[in-house]
């Protein structure tokens, strides 16, 4: 490789898109796996159009910014207690939140009892996203050609470990802390900031760290695809059952017999703590599934 070529390769690397096909001819050539003919035509007009496009875009966005700023100026002032947003709804949530939900964290109590249907929809969105990503990226015969499958099978990446001693030591120190913080945030969601979703993300992050450093085979020993599907579905279904019971009794004016406990204790707040734990496990599973599907195409 000559010096100028090396420089060109370096600048391509700095530009960051050396892995992209730059022209339609290159796309066709790569699809046919033929040698690339260097093209001369047509994309020049696209590039010129791209520059024009960006000029128009900047103008458009500046106009949008001016209009929106003029709108924002006429909004109610920032931090004023008399804002229309601070009406009787948040007053009710704050004043009667503890006696009705038993949760010291009023935000967590609100989204998991008064607005639990909304939050169930959010969990369903996460479930759907995990399903769609599985459909798109799973390594099976619909998504990969036989050649890719052969190549992927040949270098079995389950055993790929990082040999770096610094990374391994740091991860071994960090992993217990991250798992502990994840469980803490999940279990104390009704007493302190946090809740099922953030705790689950921290747990999932810990799993990702472990899998990245010690190879996904070591995670598969205690967390395989079967367990993943089981946890995901069972958590969402338990959540749905709790929700149905809570909403049914509430809307029919029945007593729901849910023991609220003493506010401030760990075991208190009725349905909020179980739901936090269920959501946390589901989110941790989903996030590890995202990682596994993106990096290897299977759990």
């Amino acid at each position: 490789m000559s010096t100028s070529n090396r420089f060109k390769a370096f600048f391509d690397w700095v530009d960051g898109e050396e892995w992209c096909a730059k022209t339609p001819d290159e796309v066709i050539a790569r699809q046919k796996k033929a040698p690339v003919r260097r093209p001369t035509y047509e994309l020049d007009s696209y590039r010129r159009f791209r520059r024009l496009n960006q000029a128009v875009g900047a103008l458009f966005c500046i106009t949008l910014a001016v209009v929106l700023t003029l709108v924002v100026v006429s909004f109610p002032p920032f931090g004023d207690p008399a804002n229309p947003a601070n009406n009787e709804v948040p007053a009710r949530y704050i004043e009667r939140g503890i006696e009705e939900t038993g949760s010291a964290n009023l935000v967590g109590g609100m989204i998991l009892s008064y607005r639990v249907f909304d939050t169930f929809g959010e969990s369903s969105v996460l479930f759907l996203a995990a399903t769609c990503v599985t459909m798109l990226l799973r390594r099976d015969r619909n998504n990969t050609t036989s050649r890719d499958l052969r190549e992927l099978r040949s270098d079995d990446r389950a055993d790929r470990k990082d040999k770096d001693i610094v990374l391994r030591t740091v991860v071994l120190l960090l992993l217990p802390v991250s798992v502990m913080v994840g469980f803490y945030v999940m279990l104390f969601g009704h007493l302190s900031p946090g809740g099922g979703f953030s705790g689950g993300s921290i747990l999932g992050g810990g799993l990702i760290l472990y899998s990245r450093t010690f190879g996904s085979g070591s995670v598969r020993k205690f967390f395989n695809e079967h367990l993943y599907h089981l946890v995901k579905v069972v958590c969402l279904m338990c959540y749905g059952l709790i929700l149905v019971y809570y909403v049914f009794t509430g809307s029919n004016g029945l007593d729901n017999h849910i023991w609220l406990g003493i506010p401030g204790n760990i075991i208190s707040s009725g349905i909020i703590m179980p739901i936090n734990v269920l959501v946390g496990f589901e989110v941790a599973c989903t996030i590890y599934a995202f990682y596994a599907l993106f990096s290897e195409g299977e759990m």
Binding site: C20, A21, V27, R30, L43, Y46
Partner: peptide, 17 residues
């Protein structure tokens, strides 16, 4: 399409890929 550039993708589609 072997690229993440939308304009290249559109030009390729126009060329019959």
């Amino acid at each position: 399409y072997h690229t993440v550039y939308l304009d290249v993708i559109m030009a390729s589609m126009k060329k019959g890929v």
